[in-house]
């Protein structure tokens, strides 16, 4: 059960008309290391992970949907006022032919989202290592997106999302440490 708060996790502003950036941002929407893949990966792994880690996967998986919503907002704002001609010039002609301005779960190259992007191996360490890798890959994707944008407002929102990947990676690394601990041993900090 979820509770929805009708606002974005972090404000999304777009100050430059740049539909081509929307094409690149779609990577984080329906790409292999995107927010949808992340949310589905974590929420699905919860059932077969030791109890201590379930809450972390719920929290981070839920937050990924908030990130998905931010990306969707950016893509929408970047394309909503583009003409068919401008969509074509931005490299979104193929997208426009199929979807008009509708968002779709595919990556920057147009490959549709697939469940094969995510893993669920059932081995807790294996799954957490996959999660750490996923966070680092998402962090890297945000870096490449930041490098391709010259809109300070887009860069601001992407920087926030990148920082969240860092925090998530840290928490998954701590989850591995928790699982490595000997059962019942007193932890001393």
């Amino acid at each position: 059960m979820w509770i929805y708060e009708k606002k974005l996790q972090y404000p999304v502003k777009v100050s430059k008309c740049d539909p081509m950036m929307a094409k690149f941002l779609i990577e984080q929407y329906g790409g292999a290391d995107g927010e949808l893949a992340a949310a589905l990966r974590y929420l699905n792994q919860r059932y077969t992970i030791p109890d201590k880690i379930i809450g972390l996967l719920t929290d981070i998986g839920t937050e990924e949907f908030a990130h998905l919503e931010m990306i969707a907002t950016m893509v929408y704002k970047l394309t909503k006022d583009a003409t068919a001609e401008e969509m074509k010039e931005a490299g979104l002609g193929a997208h426009y032919a199929d979807h008009d301005k509708a968002l779709f779960y595919h990556n920057a190259a147009g490959a549709p989202f697939t469940a094969t992007y995510i893993q669920a191996k059932g081995d807790p360490i294996t799954d957490l290592y996959e999660d750490i890798a996923a966070e680092e890959k998402a962090r890297a994707t945000y870096q490449w997106l930041i490098n391709m944008s010259d809109d300070p407002d887009i860069i601001d929102s992407l920087s926030f999302l990148r920082e969240r990947e860092i925090v998530h990676s840290q928490r998954f690394r701590e989850a591995v440490e928790i699982l490595k601990e000997d059962q019942g041993r007193k932890k001393v900090f």
């Binding site: 870096q143 860092i166 925090v167």
Partner: peptide, 13 residues
């Protein structure tokens, strides 16, 4: 605003 409570985890890019 920064995306983390912890200066130790804040790494702007």
């Amino acid at each position: 605003r920064k995306g983390t409570l912890w200066p130790a985890l804040y790494a702007p890019y």
